[in-house]
Amino acid sequence: MPRNKFQTIIFTLLMTFFMVYVMICYNIAIEKGNMRNEIFLIAFQEMLIMWPAAFIIEMLFGEKLSMKLSQRIITPFMNNSILIVLAISSMTVCVMCPVMSLLAVLLFKSPGSELVAVWLNTIVFNFPMALFSQIFFVGPLVRFIFGTVFKNEGKEVSDKM
């Protein structure tokens, strides 16, 4: 996990990239009626807007709110790291899914007077996929990549002591 601001930025860039890409592919597949190879390329068009937006939202308030909510679940005596990761990941989805769904509705769905209904419908479709992806695929992938890139970072600090 990130140990400083630079690492937090890198971790957040990776996490938002993969989560946004997965969710865009998922939403396009729903819109088209099924998954097709072309969706993997089409998704990059929306990435230009949604990835920076997700990064900014996460850095401005998403991370702080997710951590605050997860601290309600995590007790000071909890030393099982998987439970801590699951709590933080779940709360991140609870914060980011409604916000990103609203942004996607406003930018891509033209809801008109049905904004609230379309937004709630979008959340209902997106939340299970976002949670499943975060816990089982994207979260572990990003933590693996991040851990691989920064594996010597912690050793260098302990070697100097």
Rank of each mutant, 00 (worst) to 15 (best):
P2F: 11
R3A: 13
N4Y: 03
N4P: 01
F6Y: 13
T8I: 13
T8R: 12
I9Y: 12
T12W: 04
M15R: 13
F17Q: 00
F18S: 09
F18H: 04
Y21E: 01
M23S: 11
I24T: 10
Y26N: 14
I28A: 09
A29I: 00
K32H: 14
K32F: 04
K32E: 15
N34Y: 10
R36K: 13
I39C: 07
E46T: 12
E46F: 15
I49R: 10
W51Y: 11
A53L: 12
A53H: 07
A53M: 06
F55C: 11
I56N: 10
M59L: 03
M59E: 04
L60P: 06
L60I: 03
G62Q: 08
E63H: 05
L65Y: 04
S66G: 09
S66Q: 00
S66A: 15
K68P: 05
L69W: 02
S70H: 06
R72H: 04
I74K: 01
N80Y: 09
I82N: 13
L83D: 10
A87D: 02
I88D: 08
M91N: 10
M91E: 03
T92G: 08
V93Y: 15
V93C: 12
M96T: 09
C97L: 09
C97G: 07
P98W: 12
M100F: 12
S101Y: 04
S101E: 01
S101P: 06
L103T: 15
L107W: 08
K109C: 12
K109P: 07
S110N: 02
S110D: 03
P111Y: 04
P111Q: 02
G112D: 06
G112P: 11
G112H: 12
E114W: 04
V118Y: 07
W119Y: 02
L120V: 15
N121R: 13
N121V: 13
T122V: 01
T122C: 10
N126D: 01
F127P: 07
F127D: 03
F127T: 08
M129F: 08
M129Y: 06
A130D: 02
L131R: 01
F132K: 15
S133R: 09
Q134M: 15
F136W: 11
G139I: 05
P140K: 05
I145L: 15
T148C: 05
V149R: 00
F150C: 09
F150N: 08
F150Q: 07
N152H: 08
K155A: 03
V157E: 14
V157A: 06
S158Y: 00
M161I: 06
